[in-house]
Amino acid sequence: MIPDLSNANIYIVCGHTDLRKGVDGLAILVTEEYKMGVFDNALFIFCGTRKDRFKALYWNKSVFLLLYKCFENGYMQWPRDRSEIRRLNYRQMSRLVNGLAIEERRTIRPIIPRHVY
């Protein structure tokens, strides 16, 4: 039942969202506050005040899917600017929902070979 999201438009609603909202409440939030279409092959991800859980809303051409995930250990690194929706690619979304930072930080620097004479 999990949709293939590799070609979907993926958005995170930054800031806090009331996660008590269901499908209708989240769809109204997207259409009225952000002026976006919920039927446009888009996945919208919402986070509440606690960063250890999120909800996602997706229209699969016949019904809405409301996905919910709660981390037992750890939390997400969630942008808190409430006034924006941020677009993600599939890889960034995968990192976010697995508890990693959206942007990969390079910790390994490439080795620059030195000429030894």
Rank of each mutant, 00 (worst) to 15 (best):
Asn60Glu: 13
Asn7His: 11
Asp52Pro: 00
Asn98Pro: 02
Gln92His: 11
Ile10Thr: 06
Asp4Thr: 12
Val116Tyr: 12
Leu19Val: 07
Leu57Gly: 02
Glu32Tyr: 14
Glu104Val: 07
Ile112Phe: 15
Ile28Ala: 08
Glu33Gln: 15
Arg87Glu: 15
Leu67Met: 14
Pro3Leu: 10
Lys21Gln: 15
Tyr68Asn: 02
Ile10Arg: 00
Ala8Asp: 13
Phe39Ala: 03
Leu96Phe: 08
Arg95Ile: 02
Gly99Glu: 01
Lys21Arg: 15
Met1Cys: 10
Arg106Cys: 01
Arg114Ser: 01
Leu88Pro: 06
Ile12Trp: 00
Ala27Gln: 03
Thr31His: 07
Asp40Met: 09
Phe44Thr: 02
Arg82Glu: 10
Ile111Val: 13
Cys70Tyr: 11
His16Pro: 00
Leu57Asn: 07
Leu57Asp: 09
Arg87Phe: 13
Val13Leu: 06
Lys35Ile: 05
Asn89Gln: 15
Arg80Asn: 13
Cys47Asn: 13
Lys35Phe: 09
Lys55Gln: 10
Leu57Tyr: 08
Ile108Val: 13
Tyr75Leu: 12
Trp59Val: 02
Ile28Trp: 15
Tyr117Met: 11
Leu65Gln: 11
Val116His: 10
Val30Ser: 03
Glu104Asp: 04
Phe39Leu: 11
Asn9Met: 07
Gly15His: 11
Ile102Gly: 01
Asp52Leu: 15
Ser62Arg: 00
Thr31Arg: 10
Arg91Lys: 12
Pro79Thr: 13
Arg87Leu: 14
Ile2Ser: 11
Gly25Asn: 04
Asp40Val: 13
Val38Tyr: 06
Arg53Asn: 04
Tyr90Val: 09
Ile45Glu: 03
Leu96Pro: 00
Tyr11Gly: 13
Tyr58Val: 01
Leu26His: 00
Phe71Ile: 07
Val13Asp: 03
Phe54Gly: 00
Pro110Cys: 07
